[in-house]
Design a protein around this nucleic acid. Structure first.
Lengths: 136, 136
DNA sequence: ACAAACTTTAGAATCATTATAAACTACGAA
DNA sequence: TTCGTAGTTTATAATGATTCTAAAGTTTGT
C-alpha cells in the first residue's frame, strides 16, 4: 500500500475527508521517517514553496488543529509567541536551546523516570512533559 | 524597613529607577507572602481596579519583561495564546488543569529527582521545567 | 535648578490566530 | 450518473496579544 492510500485511510478513519489539501499536508508531515518540529508558518512555507498546489493559511491552521485533536501531532509547551508542533507523538520531552532558539527531542529513554508525589482530588494525570532549557 | 523601601532598593539594585508605577507593580506582585500566576491582563486588572493610579498596558508589559530579565518573575512554558508568569521564582514545576484551565504549583519536593542522560556538545542545562497536564 | 538619561503613555503597528461567508468538492442515495 | 447535502477550502476580515513610536513627563547627579 502506498503512502497516499495510507493517508487516505488515516483521514477516513478519523472522520476527515481525504481532500487533496489534507493529503498534501500529510505528505509534508509524515512522508519522512524523521520526525520534526514546526510552526504553522514553517509548514506553510514547506508546502507552498515546493508544490504547485498552494494551500491557504486557514486550511493549514484548520488541518493542524484537526490533526492535533486526532493525536497525529502534538503541540509543544513553550514560552514563545507562536505555537510549535511535533510530528513525534511518542511520549517524549524537549531541549530548548535558548541561544539558537532550537528544539531538540529528548526521548523518554534520555530522561529518568519522573515521579509526581502530589495528587489533586478528582483529577488524573493526562501527560507529563519536561522542557530542559540549554544555554552556551 | 517597610516594603516600599525594599522595593525601592530592589529596583535601584537592578538599575531600574523606582518610579511610582514600578513600586505599585511591585506591591501588586510581591506584597503578599503567597505567590501566584498571572497574565499581563490579569495584572493590569488587579492594579487598575483597586487603585487610583492607572498604569498603562505598555508600562505593565515593559515592567513585567524587565522583572523577568532580572529574575524577579518567571514565565511559565505553556501552550496557550497568552503568556503566563509566576511570582514564585524558586525551582519548581506546574500542574495544568486542562478542564479548568488552571495552573497549580508543584514544588520541587512534589517531584522526584529528574535525570537527563542526553548531553549536547557545548551546551549546559539552564533549567528543567516539568508540566503535568491534569484532566477530570 | 538644570541637563541628560530614563520612563510613561496613548495610540499605531505588527504578528499570530480565529471567524466569516461564499465558492467548491466529496460522497452516498436514487 | 446525477443530485443534494454535508463537509471543505479560501480570501478576507476580525480579534487579541504584544511590541513599537514618539512625544510628554520624571528622576538623578551636579
Amino acid at each position: 500500500m502506498n503512502l497516499t492510500s495510507i493517508y487516505d485511510k488515516k483521514l477516513r478513519n478519523s472522520g476527515l475527508r481525504p481532500t487533496k489539501q489534507r493529503i498534501k499536508i500529510c505528505e509534508a508531515l509524515f512522508d519522512s521517517e524523521k520526525t520534526f518540529h514546526f510552526s504553522i508558518n514553517d509548514l506553510a512555507n514547506i508546502i507552498n514553496n515546493k508544490s504547485s498546489l498552494k494551500i491557504s493559511l486557514a486550511t493549514i491552521y484548520n488541518t493542524v488543529h484537526a490533526f492535533k485533536e486526532k493525536g497525529y501531532l502534538k503541540q509543544i509547551p513553550l514560552n514563545t509567541n507562536q505555537a510549535y508542533f511535533d510530528t513525534n507523538i511518542s511520549d517524549h520531552h524537549h531541549f530548548y536551546d535558548v541561544n539558537d532558539k532550537k528544539l531538540i527531542d529528548l526521548d523518554n529513554s534520555d530522561v529518568g523516570p519522573i515521579n509526581i508525589y502530589k495528587k489533586i482530588n478528582g483529577k488524573k494525570i493526562k501527560s507529563i512533559e519536561v522542557l530542559v532549557k540549554l544555554e552556551d
